[in-house]
């Protein structure tokens, strides 16, 4: 059986959705309450890492593929850069040209909300990628070590 025991698998299946919702809340309300793109991104990444620890690599990659994670990583970084370039329209780099909205509302404060979302995507996918690389590396090197001994 791959992964950990049945109890861990069931509980982690139940919990992963809530962890992702909590991470999304931390990201979306980052400009009104403590939190933000970095913390929320790490929380979302830890949800996928929990999935990988409990179920093994295949289940986690079926939820978020390796190629999709690479694309999301680069897309998040590029989106943040584009938000910076959008300020050039108004005058200078990183100028807050989007609509401000109303104070203390979710859709307010111009570019801070989209920048938070972009950073969250970038941090989450890159941390998931590096952890999956560490996990896969161990399995492959162990297998090659055993095969080397057999030979």
């Amino acid at each position: 059986m791959k992964g950990l025991s049945l109890i861990v698998k069931t509980i982690s299946d139940f919990v992963v959705a809530f962890i992702i919702i909590f991470g999304a809340y931390i990201v979306l309300y980052g400009h009104l309450t403590p939190g933000g793109g970095f913390a929320g991104g790490v929380i979302i990444a830890s949800a996928f890492i929990l999935l990988m620890l409990a179920h093994g690599r295949e289940v986690a990659f079926s939820k978020l593929g390796e190629r999709a994670a690479h694309i999301l990583d680069s897309a998040g970084a590029l989106a943040f850069l584009l938000i910076g370039w959008a300020g050039v329209v108004g005058g200078y780099f990183f100028m807050n040209v989007f609509g401000r909205g109303e104070q203390f509302r979710l859709l307010s404060s111009g570019m801070i909300l989209p920048a938070n979302i972009a950073i969250a995507f970038k941090v989450a996918s890159s941390l998931f990628l590096v952890f999956s690389a560490l996990a896969i590396f161990r399995r492959r090197s162990f297998r090659s070590m055993i095969e080397g001994e057999l030979r």
């Binding site: 400009h31 309450t33 403590p34 939190g35 933000g36 401000r100 909205g101 109303e102 111009g110």
Partner: peptide
């Protein structure tokens, strides 16, 4: 900036 969290702003 209309952001209530000064650190985020």
């Amino acid at each position: 900036t209309y952001a209530a969290n000064i650190v985020a702003s």
